[in-house]
């Protein structure tokens, strides 16, 4: 897996040495910051409620989660395939999964930087005399990073399919939105309580999985594993798609 580390460093440098990442971060931070201040006002200065709002308790968080990972990952394979760099990468003595893993970690790191802004807000609140509860705040950032990893993995899988970055971003956004909307099928199909499909949809509810633990300050192995397993699955899918590029 040393190849993954090399790819990770290369991708991270590529990300942070391109203006796109900084522009995305600036926009996302401004968006996040605006809603954070709004929530502080709305909750009458309640720091804990505002932090929960920022990290998973609001639609704005999920909007960022749906939109940002596709923009970060769209170029990772499709752009390289278009410019021909991917050929070199695939012929390099690195396993395909290491390539996917390195890129996934790099994209997730960028998202983690974004969510870490909550720690800066927390530090500011502490400096103003009201320290947040740090452990749940850290778990919130960890959870947000895990969710982002899942959506980055989806973005990578789709980026591996196409040679057009914009198309990759578009389809990844659609896929992310579809995954978040899965639980609404339950109401749409008027499924009776206890039906297998309803139970399955309940288990596939990303928002509930996240809010039932990370947002309320708990760490639940069920939810951590959920995100790890599905991130792993989509990374595996990206690896297989990448591999298929050799012979298709």
């Amino acid at each position: 897996m040393s190849g993954a580390w090399t790819i990770y460093r290369r991708e991270l440098a590529g990300l942070f040495l391109s203006p796109l990442a900084w522009v995305l971060l600036a926009i996302a931070l401004a968006f996040n910051g605006f809603f954070f201040v709004l929530s502080v006002k709305g909750f009458g200065g309640d720091v804990l409620a505002s932090m929960s709002f920022l990290l998973g308790g609001s639609y704005t968080f999920w909007l960022l989660v749906v939109l940002l990972p596709p923009l970060v990952t769209m170029r990772m394979f499709s752009e390289e395939a278009r410019t021909g760099v991917l050929e070199f990468l695939l012929t390099a003595p690195v396993h395909d999964f290491a390539v996917v893993l390195g890129k996934l970690l790099a994209a997730t790191t960028l998202m983690a930087v974004l969510w870490s802004s909550a720690l800066v807000y927390g530090a500011a609140a502490a400096a103003l005399g009201t320290a947040p509860d740090w452990t749940p705040l850290l778990s919130g950032v960890f959870g947000a990073t895990l969710v982002s990893a899942l959506f980055c993995a989806i973005g990578l899988s789709i980026s591996a399919v196409t040679n057009t970055p914009l198309l990759a971003a578009f389809f990844a956004t659609i896929a992310n939105a579809a995954i978040l909307s899965l639980p609404f099928l339950d109401a749409l199909l008027a499924l009776p309580p206890g039906s297998p499909l309803r139970v399955m949809l309940g288990h596939a509810n990303v928002i509930t999985q996240f809010q039932a633990s990370f947002v309320v300050g708990a760490l639940d192995t069920k939810h951590v594993l959920f995100f790890l397993v599905w991130t792993g699955f989509f990374s595996f899918l990206a690896t297989r798609v990448l591999e298929a590029r050799r012979w298709w």
């Binding site: 900084w22 600036a26 502080v40 807000y121 500011a124 103003l128 005399g129 509860d133």
Partner: peptide, 30 residues
């Protein structure tokens, strides 16, 4: 844990930090 919004400049500080400093820093770096 409640910030005293009425008697301090907490909201101004948070506004400057969240809406100005952090995104501005990223924009400058970009």
């Amino acid at each position: 844990r409640v910030l005293d919004l009425a008697n301090t400049n907490a909201l101004t500080v948070l506004n400057v930090l969240a809406f100005g400093v952090l995104p501005g820093l990223c924009a400058v770096l970009g």
